[in-house]
Structure formats: C-alpha cells, structure tokens
Computed example of a mutant assay.
Amino acid sequence: MTSAIIVFDIDGVIRDVGKSYRRAIADTVEKFTNGGYRPTMDDIDCLKSEGIWNNDWEGSRELTYRYWEKEGQERSSLNLNYQAIIDFFQSCYRGSDPNNWNGYITTEPLLVQIDYFNALSAQDITWGFFSGATRGSAEYVLKKRLGLKAPLLVAMEDAPGKPDPTGLFATVRQLEGESPSIPVLYAGDTVADMQTIIAARKGQPQRKWIGIGVLPPHVLEDSQRREAYATTLKEAGASLVLNAVKDLTAARVQQVL
C-alpha cells in the first residue's frame, strides 16, 4: 500500500537549468533590450522570489519591461511582441532544428538517475511530476534522458501556472488510486512551488500537504547564497530544504511524515 506520494517539479530539481533555461532568459532579455541589459543569475533569482514568474517566457518579458521602464519608457508604449519573445527563447533553448533539438536543452546535467525512482517505488512511495515546463521539454528529460517509460506528468499545457494548485491536484488525483488520504510531498526549487503547497492546503485541507525545498545547483557553491536561498524557501512554506532531490529518500520521507 502506498505510504506517500511525491510530486516533483523538474527544472532545478531533476535537471540543472542554470545554463539552459536561465541562459535563454538572459539571451532573450539581452536581445529585446537591444543589448542594454543581460540579467545575472541573481537578477533571475530575485524575480523568481516574487513567486509569480514561474513561466520563463513571461519572466523574460517582465525583465525586459523593467529595463525599459528604468530607461524612462512606459510599458504601454513599448509594443513588445510576446510571440517574438517566445520564438527567440525557444530558438535558444530548443535550438534551430524543430525535429532534432540542438539547443541548450541538450546540455542540461541530470540531478538524479532512474535508480532513485526505482528505490522509491520499492518502498511503496508513489511519484509523478508537475512542472511549468512544456510537455515536450519535460518529456525530453524524463523519457529520453532519464529513461522513464511512462512517467505521470502534468505540464504547462495541462494546467494553470503555479502557484495555482490545479496542476498539483490533477497529478495527485491520477496517482492516488483509491486512497485520497495519502499524504503528498511536493519537491520544488522556487517560491512559486512552495506557494503552490500553501494553496493546496487551503483548497484541500483534509489532506496532508508538505513542501520540500530543493536548492538549485547554482546556489550551492556559495554558503551565504545557499543559506539565503534556503531561508527564502522556508519562509515561502518549505517544511524541509535539501541540497539535492536525491536526499529525499524513503527514510527521509518517513521522518517528515
């Protein structure tokens, strides 16, 4: 019998996106500010900490808007083409070949291996994925890179963006079978992920919802930065913050429960 359900975010948890998604954000903002501004990793972290910029296309547009506002322009007068932002972003991230991706996505380091998920299953822990990534991008890492056969996934196209808990509810509904009282852990690396858990508690208070913060690789090298990021996740609702998702073992799950 399933003892717990773990739902995983993907970006920053299953794969390192510091030099892929985040690089594409920086490239996109640089292009649409005509070279005037290239956001740093800290700039992107600061934006993400606001909890409403889980969508990297929207985040790229927002950083672009903020740059031009500092230059004295009004948003209403900028006439930014959102589809053009998406297209450029995707050309960086996926690459130039729509059939055989050759962009930044091909270089993403994996943060966990398939054995980790097999070990969870062996301990009667059910798992799935809820991500703000597109289905194509998410399945690329889950199926092609990790080798998972038929992972349960709710992606960008399937639900409203975080912190709306609709996608999390949908994931859990497909995983729980006949046991609606099973506790749920959601492992994510952003404020929006933790706020999703808070929203889930309000929406379905009869179930136990636990937020597990996972530190993205780009903050681990600097202790001060690591502590600050961990504090941000805890303040946003994380019950526990880990350096890597593979530290969320069956034994650790039981401790949290």
Rank of each mutant, 00 (worst) to 15 (best):
G213K: 03
I210Y: 07
W101G: 07
N55G: 15
D189C: 07
C92F: 02
V253I: 13
S77T: 12
L111Q: 01
K31W: 04
G147P: 10
T28N: 04
R226Y: 06
V17W: 02
I212Q: 08
Q255D: 09
H218P: 06
D164G: 01
I44N: 05
R225I: 01
A133F: 11
E69T: 07
G59F: 04
Q174L: 14
E108T: 00
E50H: 00
E50S: 01
R66Y: 03
E108I: 00
G35L: 13
I14T: 09
S137D: 15
Q206P: 01
I44K: 09
K144M: 07
Q254P: 07
G128F: 04
D124C: 05
A133D: 10
Q113W: 09
L220T: 11
I198H: 15
R207A: 01
A119L: 15
L215Q: 05
D43H: 08
Y116C: 13
P216E: 01
A244P: 08
G203T: 05
A159V: 08
I125W: 05
R38G: 10
G12L: 06
G132F: 01
T166F: 02
P165N: 11
A250M: 00
R38V: 06
K48A: 13
I182P: 08
T196I: 10
I212C: 12
E108C: 00
W101N: 01
S137A: 15
E58G: 10
P163T: 09
N118G: 10
G72T: 02
G18N: 14
T196V: 09
Y104F: 12
D115Q: 12
S121Q: 05
V141F: 14
T126S: 13
E58P: 02
